[in-house]
Write a protein that binds this DNA or RNA. Structure first.
Lengths: 346, 346
DNA sequence: CAAAGGCATGTTATCGATACCAAATCAACA
DNA sequence: TGTTGATTTGGTATCGATAACATGCCTTTG
């Protein structure tokens, strides 16, 4: 039977598949098939349908489609911040990897709090994503429960959680920072300082600090030079303020390691502003290998992390699990690489 | 009648509203009301329902809900790149503004091409967003047609399109760059050079260049010092290479204006690397007021744009139009401010 | 030439929620 | 105590598409 909408051609409304079907003289099922690639529809019919689609300006309604096919075509990803270029790179890696699959990304950011993460997870699960990518391994209990009962693959990234939920794509922030310390110690530096944020909101930041402390301990170097400044993620400006505070308390510090390149850059610029020579008077290193670290003068020694690759691999892993639906793959931990990049600042 | 799913309690499946209704001993309609704030359900009933919801770990299925309510709760936003901190700020402005309304953001990026924009627009329209925010005023014809027939409010941002589709929240890139030229000219600079990308993909970049050329003309200053380097958006590194090329061709250039702060930063660092004094030997200015411009040494003179505010206001405008559904507001153009920020690099 | 099989297309029954209207319950008051 | 009006709850149809199955046509082959 003709739908009311179709029988009132004068009325302007968003066309549905029924309108297309009527116009092309076929059934909605045939239209549905014609619009989904990989299904067999005769060339002539397909052309008729495409003409109708163009004439009407019809656009498929995926909300309706996913209700009956039980596949939404969504993948959710939650990052601490999209203003941080590291996570923006990860988001881009995810999107690029998803592009060819027809999956669409639902992106949200937590501002580094697990409470907001929980809210986001719930909001996104309402959209029935086919998989979800998280940053880090710290989540509220309720968030864990929601994820468990959602029955979809979960990938935690950017860390190696002690108690992973499902899949993991990341690296040890502790070890990475430790490697940086050791690399610089080998170069002769002995009095190391560390600059980071004030709270543990940023779990990756905390892990880096732990890695720093542990490495210093292991090497038997002077300990205790830790400056906490600002709520994570700390900014360029706060990096500058922190290094001032560091030099006031421990004027003989030889090398300052920062939780991120942004704070390292701030520290570097502040030192230059004060007429200090870097690295002769003080060496500075960061973490993350932001573009700015490579091209500022002097270039900043840092730890390069494959941000884009983390996103790519997380998405890839997710797709594998989604595709291989039945024989649900077991948990897997993908280690992504990191490497110390030595530049002129040390 | 009891659904099959509900009658097989042993089977693990994602619970639906029917499951909740059965467990709470009410109808699905009442469950639906209890989960939607602002509807009247007695306290006792609501508690029973909430208990059932928690016991089952039920999460509302919004795809199903939006099909019947004809409201998806989505807003789409398309930006050139999420790795660019200016657009990331805009995205954050949008998200923050949407948060209290319960609308969710569908974010996509075009990599600065209208073709990818067209694809994205179509992909997003399939999700039936209630409104859409675009960057710039350059779109393919098909994209314009799709947007028109979608019948949803559209906000174009970051520019003042000659032929707006609907709403606009932006500023004149041409005028903004012109203001920068005039400000520096007043300070005595006369030989200006301009650094930008090679193609017109980045329409805002093109407009800035035009603004530069026009201002130079109007002031009767030496013209022609234009260096195009790299595919937009040009990077820090390319800014450095471009300034080298500029100085080779026009060694007496006094002030170099760059399409963005990133290229300006690259130019600045390259000059310092070559032992030039900034601004004594050469002045450098950028556009966008990125964080790096404020805190590098010397600080970079630039044009501050209210990126976050653009996002906020675009979202706000969209919400107004969506809310005031019937009496569809007319087209409106919201001008966002910009201002020249003078720092030590000029 | 009839049977078998492949391909194109149609029919019907959902997917999970909400809109709309009807019914039931409750409180208040004459 | 019966009536009125407000509030809470339920029944049913429907949103727009697709899965699953059914049908019909055409080609192939013994």
């Amino acid at each position: 039977m003709a739908k009311a909408a179709a029988s009132r051609p004068g009325e302007s409304h968003t066309p549905t598949m029924v309108d297309v079907a009527l116009r092309a003289g076929v059934s909605t099922m045939t239209v549905s098939r014609a619009l989904k690639e990989g299904s067999r529809v005769s060339k002539a019919t397909r052309e008729k349908i495409m003409t109708a689609v163009n004439d009407l300006g019809y656009v498929l309604d995926q909300s309706a489609g996913s209700l009956s096919s039980r596949k939404t075509g969504f993948v959710a990803a939650i990052v601490p911040s999209i203003n941080n270029s590291n996570f923006a790179d990860t988001a881009r890696g995810i999107t690029d990897e998803l592009e060819s699959t027809g999956l669409q990304l639902l992106l949200g950011y937590t501002d580094y709090t697990v409470e907001k993460e929980e809210q986001l997870i719930e909001a996104m699960l309402r959209r029935r994503p086919e998989g979800i990518i998280l940053t880090g391994g710290a989540h509220t209990d309720r968030a864990r429960r929601l994820l468990k009962s959602a029955g979809i693959p979960v990938v935690e990234t950017w860390e190696l959680p002690a108690k992973p939920i499902d899949q993991v794509v990341g690296f040890s922030n502790e070890e990475a920072m430790g490697l940086l310390v050791k690399t610089l110690a080998k170069r002769g530096y002995r009095k190391f300082g560390y600059i980071g944020g004030t709270t543990s909101r940023d779990t990756r930041g905390s892990q880096r600090r732990e890695g720093f402390v542990r490495a210093i301990d292991e090497l038997g170097l002077p300990t205790g030079r830790l400056v906490s400044f600002g709520v994570p993620p700390i900014s360029i400006e706060q990096g500058g303020q922190a290094v001032v505070s560091m030099l006031e308390r421990w004027p003989d510090t030889q090398a300052v390691l920062c939780v991120s390149d942004l704070s390292a850059f701030g520290a570097l610029m502040e030192c230059k502003r004060r007429g200090m020579r870097v690295p002769q008077d003080i060496a500075i290193a960061g973490f993350g290998d932001y573009e700015v670290a490579a091209f500022c003068h002097p270039g900043i020694t840092t730890v390069n992390v494959d941000c884009y690759g983390i996103g790519q691999q997380a998405a890839r892993r997710l797709i594998q699990v989604i595709r291989g639906d039945e024989k649900r793959h077991g948990q897997e931990i993908v280690l992504t690489g990191y490497r110390v990049v030595e530049r002129e600042s040390t």
